[in-house]
Design a protein around this nucleic acid. Structure first.
Lengths: 245, 245
DNA sequence: CGGGATCTTGAGGATGCTCAACGCTAGTGG
DNA sequence: CCACTAGCGTTGAGCATCCTCAAGATCCCG
């Protein structure tokens, strides 16, 4: 099911009457930032806000792709399944990230909340009409797609050719970079997802993830703090570990 | 260097004076198909055609992304390198495929001709101006980016969670599907690339690729023909092998 | 404080890699 | 015309990384 039918989902709020955009912390980072204050109402008119509980489903692979989303709070995981249950997480989304560019008529993957999250929902049909009206929105979307493709290439390199340790370190550095882009410090980083999720993202098992992290900890490359925080004392050294140079 | 400086590349033709688009076999499949006969001249005006010899470089990762390309004949491989030389091929392009969506200011990967190829080259700057003039071109580009992202997700699933045999079979079926989209038969398929390229695309070694293909051959799932052609006698059975169901 | 889920650690094993040799094909030049 | 070579593909033996299976440790929430 997913958010395509919000009436069935108790964790989904209905649209707020006051503008959620005015106070939106991620507006500039998100694709909404392409519009100025005068144009924003058009976007606001087709937008709904919602929250999803931990492990709540947002979209399901194969569903008709009728809605697009913008994550405004929390972490989301995207994943695909094989018939026998093997799972590959194709990405994590955080505040400001857009969900739904990768689709044809149907979603190419499922999406699930990691912790509790907030998001904006757009009708795809209505958004497409808006794109005709505001070409710069479409340009922004194209730029975002371009960027996502670059990220996907990096992940393909990681999965195809990196060792377990290189994968873990690359992952940590990637989270750090994205935190910086969101205006947070480069270290410590927050790891809101479990070992199993990390494993399914990096093409490993939870055991290997755990062992590798323990190893990095022992060697002093990382430090585990309270609340799933990880300190990266020497990102230069980590950078080298991430590329095997 | 790459095609950014065509004067230095003996294998690059200069622009033809007669319209190469009029007789273009891939026009409808390519993004050019978004424009009708009346609009086409605008595109033609910013386009150059070229050929590249086998193993010739088209773009290099990290180069300024000043040009976009459309493959009109032959096969192209896209790849990324790690500092120690490990290589990951991120995709193969064939007639009608577009090259260059995945970039920021710089190319995210290198591209090299597999055999001899022909392509169209567009100045990115000029093409972007054209996008403003023809929104439907931009829409087409966004749709193509969306599609490429879907493909990238599939590749991520393949690399992260499939066995060697599943990878090989998925690859063969993917080539078959794309041949069908180009109007060719589903079988036999052409394998213009070598074992090493297949290995670097699937995150394997040439030895494993060779062994796995031999195995599939022995079990009757595929048949190797002359000239790098491969027959797929039972695509249903292969479909199951590809997903481990 | 109890209990389920998650994380860690260990031992053994399998998939795919490394290293090495051999075969095949096509292009080259005697 | 055919030996020769270079590149590519195939096959084999041994091995390493990572997986599987299992048990214990830790954490978190009720």
């Amino acid at each position: 099911m997913g958010l395509g039918e919000p009436k069935k989902r108790p964790e989904s709020d209905t649209t707020e009457q006051v503008s959620p955009c005015a106070a939106c912390a991620v507006r500039d980072m998100a694709f909404c930032g392409a519009l100025n204050d005068r144009e924003m109402p058009h976007l606001l008119a087709i937008l709904q806000t919602a929250t999803v509980e931990p492990h709540g489903s947002i979209i399901d692979e194969g569903e008709a792709a009728d809605y697009l989303f913008n994550v405004t709070q929390g972490a989301v995981k995207l994943y695909k399944l094989l018939p026998d249950g093997r799972r590959q997480i194709t990405g994590f989304l955080f505040e400001g990230d857009f969900l739904g560019i990768a689709m044809n008529e149907r979603y190419a993957y499922s999406a699930e909340a990691v912790g509790q999250i907030s998001l904006c929902r757009f009708s795809r049909r209505k958004l497409e009409r808006l794109l005709d009206e505001f070409p710069k929105l479409e340009k922004r979307l194209l730029g975002m797609a371009s960027n996502e493709l670059v990220q996907a290439q990096d992940q393909i390199l990681l999965l195809g050719r990196k060792t377990a340790q290189e994968k873990i370190v690359s992952f940590l550095l990637n989270l750090s970079d994205r935190q910086v882009k969101r205006g947070a410090p480069a270290s410590p980083i927050l790891l809101p997802m479990g070992r199993a999720d990390i494993a399914d993202y990096l093409g490993l098992t939870t055991e290997t993830v755990s062992r590798t992290i323990t190893n990095l900890k022992r060697k002093g490359y990382i430090k585990l703090l309270q609340g799933g925080m990880v300190e990266l004392p020497d990102s230069e050294a980590l950078q080298e570990l991430a590329e095997g140079s």
